[in-house]
């Protein structure tokens, strides 16, 4: 019953709060749930976490575009994550303490649920992909990997009169 209740709550939040949400598709509550999950997939260390790097912006934006077709999967996934979280500690994922968030993520991962695989893929894309789509803010993941941004290689050497590498 808790699951049904939370599903209803999320739906209401998703419908009624849309206009006041700072997101394009997600409700504030859904964005918090996604951030809780995303920051387990890519946690903060010396470099930003997924949500700190704009991954929620990335996914939210794509859900209005190419990932429109995954909306139902996300809705169902948020419900499922919150259900597991409530089983573990009585509150939704976004309100759960970090150790519980990790356990919930492990549970989702062990199920190899379609939602977990989808969300993992999208979170990684947002973090390691091109900054233009809202994630990888300031190319932070590329800098983390030691890649120049903006890339200087080639440009600095580029000289029509000499040929490459000369």
């Amino acid at each position: 019953m808790a699951g049904t209740a939370s599903a209803g709550a999320i739906c209401v939040a998703g419908c009624s709060c849309r206009s006041s949400s700072r997101w394009e598709f997600l409700s504030d509550a859904q964005a918090e749930t996604l951030a809780a999950l995303a920051d387990q997939i890519i946690p903060e260390d010396d470099f930003p976490s997924a949500s700190q790097a704009g991954v929620i912006v990335y996914i939210d934006r794509q859900l209005m575009g190419p990932y429109r077709r995954h909306r139902d999967a996300y809705q169902a996934g948020f419900e499922s994550a919150d259900r597991i979280s409530r089983e573990f500690c009585g509150v939704a994922l976004a309100q759960a303490p970090p150790p519980i968030r990790q356990e919930v993520t492990s549970a989702l991962a062990e199920q190899r649920s379609d939602f977990f695989e989808l969300a993992r893929e999208h979170i990684m894309e947002g973090y390691y992909g091109s900054p233009r789509h809202g994630g990888n803010r300031d190319a932070v993941s590329w800098r983390m990997l030691g890649l120049e941004e903006p890339p200087l290689r080639g440009r600095a050497k580029y000289d029509l009169s000499k040929g490459a590498g000369s």
Binding site: L147, R153, G154, G163, A164, G165
Partner: peptide
Amino acid sequence: SVPYNDRGPCMRCR
């Protein structure tokens, strides 16, 4: 790899 057909060479980008 060098200028050819009035266009320049590869800039060796990623």
